[in-house]
Each structure stands twice: as structure tokens, then as C-alpha cells.
């Protein structure tokens, strides 16, 4: 079984967003770029599966869209343990554009299991995984918090409101994964970092695909009014404020 993880290269989640170009864009230089947190958990789970002999995972590949500046993030994924990587040489435009680029590459060499994070921490779209599955015309399962492979059968837990469902879906399929899929993201070892330098990173050219939406501009949220402080000796006052002023209880 071959596993593919779609990685998004995103600003570190602690980044302060600064708008530039008349609010048409955000400042992309001088910030730390990371593997999208959910994608990193997906990669971790894929590597755990590969280490489990029953799962019979032969190869774990990562794929991302971006220019050469995305390569440190890809190398990090290789250092964590992915076997090889693909970079599609295109600037992401919207989710449909990204999914279409991914589909063009994947169609030529199908994977059994494709993992995508539930969203990217930059555009919060929750879209690429589902779009990719539809473009490939294969099943998808979303809100996935557990994946196991045993004797070729893929079993999945998906979150539903107030609980979970244990589902099984034949390969090939796309799973859109969320928190819980792996306990903690794996950290690259020194040996992993050394090995990553020689692992294959294939760069493929962009396909002529369209985007369906466009980011016209950004705004920053308005600053919040100061917090009203209540004395710890007068907890009742807080409840009165919530009851009479905010009217929420």
C-alpha cells in the first residue's frame, strides 16, 4: 500500500499577520513557515502505519504546491520520515486550483490512501481534500480521527456530532484528518535530517488549471475594548454583569 500526504506550507501559527500592498496581501517575508499542523499529524500517522508490519505500507510520499521557497518545509517532512516528495511548481491560488494541480499529478500514479488535513491554518478552507476526491472520482471520508490498516482493509473513525462512527471504505480513497489522528507530531531526528538531504524531491511543472475564487483583499479585526475587571472577593458582581449587562445568562 502506498500513502500520499498533501502538505500545505503555512505561516507558523503564532505569526502576527501584517497586511501589505494596500491590504491586498499579507507580509510573507521574515516569518517562520511550517508544515500545516493537521498535515503534520497526518504524516505522523502514516509513518506509524508504515512501522506496523500488518499495515503493509510500502511507501509514504508527501506532495505540496509552491515555489522553491517551500522546499525547507518539504525537507522537514522528509526528515521526519517520508520516503520521497513531490513539489508542484505553482503558487497556490485557491482551493480548487490546488486540488486540480494535485489531481493532475496523482492521476498519473494513483495512491491507495491519500491523507489531507481538515484545513490549512492560513485560509481555513477545509476544501482541498474533498475537492481532490471529487476530481479523482474516488470516495472520501472527512473528520477522521483514527486510521488503521489491517490485511489490506482500511478502518476509519470519523467524528459525528456527539460521538464517532467506525467506517470502512475500499481504497483508493481520500481521508480528511483532524485532531486525534496522531497523538503528537513527530520531530525530526539528527539522522533523519541528514538522510532527508539525499531523499528524492521531484519537481513537476504546473498544469494549466483555473481558479474559481479570488482573494480581493484582507482586513484586520477591530481591536477589542478593554476587559472589565471584577474583584475576586465579589464574584457575584460578575454574575450580575453577565445577567444584566451582557444578558447572556
Amino acid at each position: 500500500m502506498n500513502i500520499l500526504i498533501c502538505l500545505s506550507n503555512v505561516p507558523d501559527t503564532t505569526t502576527k499577520i501584517k497586511l501589505v500592498d494596500d491590504n491586498k496581501n499579507y507580509e510573507k517575508t521574515g516569518i517562520q513557515w511550517i508544515i500545516n499542523p493537521w498535515d503534520e499529524l497526518a504524516l505522523t500517522r502514516a509513518l506509524e502505519l508504515k512501522e506496523n508490519a500488518d499495515a503493509k505500507v510500502e511507501k509514504v510520499t508527501v506532495i505540496t504546491l509552491g515555489g522553491k521557497e517551500a522546499e525547507p518545509t518539504i525537507r522537514k517532512a522528509l526528515a521526519i520520515g517520508a520516503d520521497d516528495a513531490i513539489r508542484i511548481d505553482a503558487e497556490p491560488q485557491d482551493a480548487f486550483f490546488v486540488a486540480s494541480q494535485l489531481a493532475e499529478v496523482i492521476k498519473k500514479n494513483m495512491y491507495d490512501l491519500i491523507l489531507c488535513g481538515i484545513e490549512s491554518s492560513d485560509y481555513n478552507g477545509s476544501a482541498v481534500g474533498g475537492m481532490l476526491a471529487e476530481l479523482l472520482d474516488i470516495p472520501s471520508v472527512s473528520a477522521v480521527s483514527m486510521i488503521n490498516i489491517n490485511g489490506g482493509e482500511i478502518s476509519i473513525n470519523r467524528e459525528i456530532d456527539g460521538g464517532k462512527e467506525m467506517v470502512s471504505v475500499p481504497a483508493p480513497l481520500v481521508t480528511v484528518v483532524q485532531k486525534g489522528i496522531a497523538k503528537e507530531p513527530r520531530i525530526a531526528s539528527m539522522r533523519g535530517i541528514m538522510m532527508a538531504k539525499t531523499k528524492p524531491l521531484n519537481v513537476v511543472p504546473a498544469a494549466p488549471v483555473e481558479s474559481l475564487t479570488e482573494y480581493a483583499g484582507f482586513e484586520l479585526p477591530k481591536p477589542k475594548a478593554a476587559c472589565k475587571m471584577v474583584s475576586p472577593d465579589n464574584v457575584k458582581e460578575l454574575v450580575d454583569l453577565l445577567h444584566n449587562e451582557a444578558k447572556v445568562i
Binding site: D94, A95, F96, A99, I118, N124, G125, S126, A127, V128, G129, G130, M131, A133, E134, L135, S140, V141, S142, A143, R158, E159, I160, D161, V176, L212, T213
Partner: peptide
């Protein structure tokens, strides 16, 4: 909805209808 079900269906529907998706 932008809940689990909506997140599972909206992207697929966006592709099927060739309709731009804005989520959340």
C-alpha cells in the same frame, strides 16, 4: 453548514457544479 457534514460535502459539490466555494 460549516460543520463536519458540510465540510465533507461542500468541496465535492463545488467541483461537481464547477462552483466557487467559500467556507465558514
Amino acid at each position: 453548514s460549516n460543520n463536519n457534514t458540510g465540510k465533507a460535502l461542500a468541496p465535492r459539490l463545488s467541483v461537481k457544479l464547477r462552483a466557487g466555494l467559500v467556507s465558514g
